[in-house]
């Protein structure tokens, strides 16, 4: 497990405990009491550390290379997943993945951004940064879901839509815009979950949903803190400051009515326990699915319109 910078004191403490255990084994002296003492200290320290994470520490967790990705989550929350490929116009953008599956027997369409785990993997999936063709593939899957009356679940973990020459030539902005408007029109329930990074229009292109949920240590923002710092402070190194100012944590976004609910993560982050993470996720998905599936197509569309219609804060 890759240790994050701010976790070092905790790892040091655990190393000391291991040392003591070794020493206890080698000598006749009984070390149980000391070990217990240190273990309790480590426990208390961890509780406090992880309960008071700063926005930039949460970003480190959200970007952890071992954070469960699309496949890790889909394998654990659903059964019978079949991946569909391609936009039917010449491209299969691997930064987006999706297909039908069942969750507790309920047929659904799962679509999400895909981050690789290794460098080789990441090159295939473009570090989870979709091209316009990825958004068009997602839209094709949304329409498929609508035709076959499947609720849609989107799993979002992206540093943003890819900024490149080909992306601009093939209309990145239009591809995202079309998804926003088309998601608004869908006749089936849509649940969006920000599982890691939720950066800008690249994330929103999959998140115009009836319910928007967010993992405890995920972040959701209009611009990456690095980008914001380099524009407003003219110094990308001030990203920590920007992260504070942008109010990007799940707690803040719940307060500003941007998201509907927060999904708890195992202590320290989702990468410490994939199964528990998936269990929490599945529970929330099922709860929201049950609520939304009882609604008519008209109700779903009107609610989605009203939900985004009221977003924003203006002066009284």
């Amino acid at each position: 497990m890759l240790m994050l910078r701010f976790e070092k004191p905790l790892y040091d403490l655990r190393a000391k405990i291991n040392e003591l255990e070794e020493m206890g084994k080698r000598s006749d002296k009984d070390m149980t009491k000391e070990i217990q003492h240190f273990e309790q200290a480590a426990e208390e320290f961890a509780e406090e550390l992880y309960a008071n994470l700063t926005p930039s520490q949460k970003i480190q967790i959200a970007r952890h290379p071992e954070r469960p990705n699309f496949k890790d989550l889909v394998d654990r929350i659903s059964e019978n997943f079949v991946e569909f490929h391609g936009d039917r116009e010449g491209t299969d953008d691997r930064a987006i993945a999706g297909g039908p599956a069942t969750i507790d027997g309920i047929p659904v369409m799962i679509v999400g951004t895909y981050k690789g785990k290794s460098t080789k993997d990441n090159l295939i999936h473009n570090f989870g940064m979709p091209q316009p063709q990825g958004y068009r593939k997602a839209l094709r899957l949304f329409k498929h879901a609508e035709r076959f009356n499947m609720p849609i679940i989107t799993l979002i973990d992206t540093p943003g839509a890819y900024p490149g020459i080909k992306a601009e030539e093939t209309a990145q902005g239009t591809a995202i815009a079309v998804n926003l408007a088309e998601l608004a029109k869908l006749k089936v329930p849509v649940i969006a979950i920000i599982t890691g990074e939720g950066c800008s229009g690249g994330a929103l292109g999959l998140a115009v949903a009836n319910k928007v949920l967010m993992f405890e240590h995920a972040y959701y923002t209009v611009i990456s803190p690095e980008g914001c710092a380099s524009i407003l402070w003219r110094d990308a190194a001030l990203a920590d400051k920007a992260a504070e100012a942008l109010k990007i944590t799940a707690d803040d976004l719940l307060k500003f009515d941007i998201i509907d609910d927060i999904i708890k993560e195992p202590r320290g982050g989702a990468h410490y326990d994939y199964d528990l993470t998936a269990k929490n996720l599945k529970k929330k998905i099922l709860k929201n699915l049950k609520e939304l599936m009882s609604k008519s197509a008209d109700e779903l569309r009107n609610e989605r319109y009203e939900k985004f219609r009221t977003k924003g804060v203006i002066a009284k």
Partner: peptide
């Protein structure tokens, strides 16, 4: 921040 994202 996210409030402006929502305007999209």
């Amino acid at each position: 921040s996210a409030l402006s994202l929502m305007q999209m």
